[in-house]
C-alpha cells in the first residue's frame, strides 16, 4: 500500500459517500444517471468475486464490502425509493449503457492476463469501469447545469483514478515484477474521459460561475 493508492481509495470512497449523502438527505437524485450507477454496481459485482475466496487484508475486504453495499443501495434508492425515484429523469438518462457491457465483455475475452473465469470477469470490470461514467457525462451535457454535489461526485471519481495512475507509476518503480498493462491502459482511458469534464469544472470553479458544459 502506498500513499497514492490510499488517497485514491479514500477519494473513491468519498465520491460514493457524497452521492449517498445527497440522495439520502435531500431525497433527490436529480442530475444523477441511474445507468452509470448500474454500471458501477456491475463493475464491483464482477470485480469482487474473490471477496470470500482470496483474503488479502482486512482493509481490502472491508472496502470491497463498502463499495458493493453503497453502489447497490444507490441503485436501489433511485429505482425503488418512493420519493427519490420521482426525481429520476429517465427521459434524459437515455444512454444505451447495455451497448457498453457487451463490447467490454468481448474485449475481456480477447485481451486478458489469464483465460480464467475470475480473471476475465476482473478484466471486464476494468474495461467497464473505464466507460461507466459516459451515461453520467452525457446526462450532464444534456441538463447543462449541474448542482454542486453531482459536480463533486464526478470530480472525486476522476481524481481517484488519477491517484491510482500515480500509484501504478510508484509500484512500477518500486516493485520489480509489477506490470499490469491492461490495468494501466484502461485506467488511463478512464482518466482521459474525465479530462474534459475536469477542464470545465475548473473553469467554472475559477471564474466562480455555475458549471456549464458545452453542448
Amino acid at each position: 500500500m502506498n500513499i497514492f493508492r490510499l488517497a485514491g481509495d479514500m477519494t473513491h470512497l468519498a465520491s460514493v459517500l457524497v452521492l449517498l449523502l445527497k440522495i439520502h438527505t435531500i431525497k433527490s437524485c436529480a442530475g444523477i444517471s441511474l445507468k452509470t450507477q448500474e454500471l458501477y454496481a456491475l463493475v464491483f459485482a464482477t470485480r469482487y468475486l474473490d471477496l470470500f475466496t482470496d483474503y488479502i487484508s482486512l482493509y481490502n475486504t472491508l472496502m470491497k464490502l463498502i463499495f458493493l453495499v453503497s453502489s447497490f443501495s444507490i441503485v436501489w434508492y433511485i429505482r425503488h425509493h418512493k420519493i427519490v425515484r420521482r426525481s429520476y429523469d429517465k427521459d434524459q438518462d437515455t444512454f444505451r449503457h447495455y451497448f457498453l457491457v457487451l463490447p467490454c465483455f468481448l474485449l475481456a475475452l480477447v485481451i486478458n492476463e489469464k483465460f480464467t473465469v475470475k480473471e476475465i470477469m476482473w478484466t471486464f470490470s476494468l474495461y467497464l469501469e473505464a466507460v461507466a461514467i459516459l451515461p453520467q457525462l452525457v446526462l450532464l451535457q444534456r441538463t447543462r447545469n449541474i448542482d454542486n454535489l453531482t459536480g463533486q461526485y464526478v470530480f472525486l471519481l476522476g481524481a481517484y483514478r488519477s491517484l491510482y495512475i500515480l500509484n501504478w507509476i510508484y509500484r512500477y518503480f518500486t516493485e520489480p515484477h509489477y506490470v499490469h498493462w491492461i490495468t494501466w491502459i484502461s485506467g488511463l482511458v478512464q482518466t482521459l474521459l474525465y479530462a474534459d469534464f475536469f477542464y470545465y469544472y475548473f473553469q467554472s470553479w475559477k471564474n466562480n460561475v455555475k458549471l456549464e458544459l458545452p453542448a
Binding site: R5, D9, H12, D50, D54, I56, N60, M63, K64, F67, W122, Y164, N167, H177, Y178, T183
Partner: peptide, 10 residues
C-alpha cells in the same frame, strides 16, 4: 494465492 497473482487493488 500469492500476492502478484491475485489482484490486490480495489
Amino acid at each position: 494465492s500469492d500476492q502478484l497473482d491475485s489482484h490486490d487493488e480495489l
